[in-house]
Computed example of a mutant assay.
Amino acid sequence: MTTTTHTTTTAAAPLAPVQEAHQVRRRRRLAPGKRLPAARLVGPAVVLAVWVVASAAGLLDTGAIPAPWTVLETGTRLWSAGTLPDDILTSLQRAAGGFAIGLTAGILLALASGLTRTGEALIDGTVNLNRAIPTLGLIPLFILWLGIGETFKIAIIAIVVYIPVYLNTHAALSGIDSRFVELAEVQGLSKLRFVRQVVIPGALPGFFVGLRLGVTGSWLGLVVLEQINATSGLGYMMFQAQNYGQTDVILVGLVVYGVFGLISDSAVRLIERRVLSWRRTLSS
């Protein structure tokens, strides 16, 4: 009887590491796996490949959707003529000005609303009311207030940017665990140290989500605004091309908008990964 028990125990012992390894492998399959190099370029590359193949096969109406090489040739011609660089520079200046104002306003309003009850009572409802109003619907009113020049364009872009920055940052501030606040009080942290050591790290993930939405929103608003009494910019170039039926020029503008949007979003993602490198998430 003793011999049988010993044999059973000895036979079962090698099975334990095998079962544990199997469970580990099974757990690891739940994660997405390693990040693919240049993964975000795969989707645009597939779209471009389909466009090339469909154009080469004659499946697309060249009057409606020109071939990629036609768009590339048009873009090269506009660049050589100097019109495309000037339009890009003008659009970048407008987007940067509105984005800087909107980002600053969104952060300050979120901090005032998220850290004080008085600020929340005065600010949060007002911002949500503003969010419920279509921002582009404010264009006629802002033209009457600020004129039809550059000021109203930058103001509209700032509104488009500050709303997602505020909402996501405020939500992150409100979601900070109250136990961290109690711990900071027990440790006797000052208000400044509390904000620096507890509030800012806790709000950064939500802030970066709002920042990405704000960057994208600045480009989306710019497309519309540059078609209103503008004499330069990518939107103006596309509006003029529409009047003359130049589909290839319109696609050049869309491609440039898409490239800048992808680059700016990727830059924010890169900064986010560096700043929040201490987090362990599925994306990392």
Rank of each mutant, 00 (worst) to 15 (best):
T5S: 03
T7L: 09
T7Y: 05
A12L: 15
A13W: 11
P14D: 15
L15I: 05
A16E: 03
P17W: 12
V18M: 09
Q19Y: 04
H22W: 15
V24W: 02
R28Y: 01
R29K: 14
L30W: 15
K34E: 06
A39E: 06
R40V: 12
L48E: 02
A49P: 01
A49R: 04
W51C: 15
V53H: 06
V53E: 02
A56Q: 13
G58V: 07
L59P: 01
L60P: 12
T62K: 13
I65H: 01
I65L: 14
I65E: 02
P66D: 09
L72H: 03
E73Y: 07
G75A: 15
R77E: 05
R77T: 04
S80E: 09
D86H: 14
L89N: 04
S91I: 01
L92I: 13
R94H: 06
R94C: 03
R94W: 03
A96T: 13
A96N: 13
F99P: 10
A100H: 10
G102N: 09
L103E: 06
T104Q: 03
L111P: 01
A112P: 05
G114L: 07
G114A: 11
A121R: 08
L122Q: 11
N130P: 02
R131D: 10
R131L: 07
R131E: 08
A132M: 15
I133K: 03
I133V: 14
T135F: 14
G137H: 09
L138F: 05
P140N: 09
F142G: 04
L146H: 11
L146I: 07
G147K: 11
T151F: 14
K153L: 06
V160P: 02
V161Q: 07
V161S: 10
Y162M: 13
L167Y: 14
A171T: 08
A171E: 07
S174M: 10
G175D: 02
G175M: 00
S178C: 00
S178K: 03
F180W: 09
L183T: 12
E185R: 14
L192V: 13
F194K: 02
R196K: 05
Q197I: 00
V198K: 00
P201W: 01
G202P: 07
F208G: 02
F208C: 00
V215C: 10
G217T: 06
L222Y: 02
L225R: 03
N229K: 08
M237E: 14
F239E: 07
N243Q: 08
Y244F: 13
Q246F: 15
D248I: 05
L251P: 03
V252W: 12
V252N: 11
G253F: 14
V255D: 09
V256P: 02
Y257W: 01
G258T: 04
I263K: 04
A267E: 01
V268H: 13
E272C: 13
R273L: 05
R274D: 01
L276Y: 07
S277G: 06
W278A: 02
R279A: 08
T281R: 04
T281Q: 09
S283H: 11
S283V: 08
S284Y: 12
